[in-house]
Amino acid sequence: MTDLRQQAVATAPVRRHVSAGFVASAITLGLFVVAAVAPNALTPHDPFAMDFTQALQSPSLVHWFGTDESGRDLFSRVIYGTRESLAIGAGAAGLAILVALVLGSVAALAGRIPAGIVNRVIEVLFAFPTLLLALLLVSILGSSPLTLVIAVGLGSAPGYARMVRGQVLSSKNSGYVEAARALGHSRSTILRQHILPNALRPLIAIFTMGVGQSIVWASGMAFIGLGVAPPSPEWGALLDAGRAYITQASWLTVLPGFVIVVLALAATTLGKHIQSFLEKGEKA
């Protein structure tokens, strides 16, 4: 035992190789978290103060992202909108993974008939594209930030459910589970100690990527007027409000959109790094 542990310590530094992509995406996401927790620390202006003499100013040193039709500083509004956007993204991704975990585990572990039924349910839900499923839910529940979380969460759940099913199945059919079974461990012990931990770990990576994706979906729905509505500084609402000024003041849509792209890209990159880190850990 001690030998093995010493070996593990000795080889650890080799595996701790961190790439520039990992560092950059982690720092970027960290900044967004700061903006969500303490927006006043990063904002040069009051995001709600109107000043019609300063309306529709293009980006400058004073107003980094320019100003909107009421003269409000867009950069400050983007910073202040981070909290709601991140909350919607994290809420939707969390809900999606929770639903996916239930559906995916049943599909992989239950007896033939219940598993077959749940499998079909996943296939049926997967036939609805995320945005359309989310729009269907919004038309039933009406549009509010909470229904947006539910709609985007449930809309993206089928895809995640397929991933979870795959993870649980591969864990169930792995060598270590066969070994545990041969050692005479009970079904519940194997499930608790071997299958679930191994199937759950990749979900951290999937969740990280899911937050970015959910924000993209939620802001897309706001863009077509079915998400969070202006005058909220939520990013989707900023896009919705800026649409009317695309020809005169393109920064009102381009810059909030750019922030969304940066966040989604950072989340995807970080998620991929976590994923490959976990896979390496499994092989070693």
Binding site: S219, T247, V254, V261
Partner: peptide, 22 residues
């Protein structure tokens, strides 16, 4: 590939609109 796959359609659309149409 990774960057383009993650581009939201509304944003890419606005950029194309601004550059090629306007």
């Amino acid at each position: 590939d990774t960057v383009t796959a993650g581009l939201p359609p509304y944003w890419l659309g606005i950029l194309l609109l601004l550059v090629f149409a306007l």
